[in-house]
Amino acid sequence: MRPESELRSLISRSQKDGFQALFQQYYGYVYAVVWNCIRSVGSHEDAEECVNDIFIEVFRQFDEIEPGKLHGYIGTVAKRRAINCFHRLTVKPQPISIEEQSLQTLAAKDSVEQDYDKAALRQVLLDQIRMLGEPDATIIMMKYFYDAAPDRIAKTVGMKQPAVRKRLSRAMKRLRDLLEKNGYTMNGGDG
């Protein structure tokens, strides 16, 4: 990963090469941000479109970004654009009547405490997935976070689709065992 200063000097020498390096470096981050936001309503094509718009904005505003704040700026633009994309993709909501009991749905579903617990469990899960090693960890994340199609997973890890399926099944079993050893039980994820 190149430091921001190196990216800036590269862009000052050759704009296209510099932007390309910036794109390659931050594409994964931007994509993850966008996909995390729109995964329930959009497709990977929507995500790519949104990522495209984000980078166009970053390229355009690059000279205005203060030194040292590139990562934060890109993250902010990505979240903002992803939310816009989510709204664009979401069906227009029905007007809500205050008198209806459905008002309860406006309240937050999870408390702060629950959020904290979830975050802790998520870190445990990510740790255990990481311990599976490659390519199993990537296969699981491609499947369960990016919801990627088997052909895309196979292309990413450089394996054939049947081999990916096999590895996924075995990796999930190993993950289940690992979690059980650490005192957790795993729900779902039999895919």
Binding site: N36, L121, L125, F145, Y146, M186, G189
Partner: peptide, 24 residues
């Protein structure tokens, strides 16, 4: 209990980690 659904809506810290460790 840990569910794989934890990966469907992640917080910022986890997002940073996922993007760093498993970038598309």
């Amino acid at each position: 209990e840990i569910s794989m659904d934890l990966l469907t809506d992640v917080d910022d810290a986890a997002l940073e980690r996922i993007a760093r460790e498993y970038p598309m």
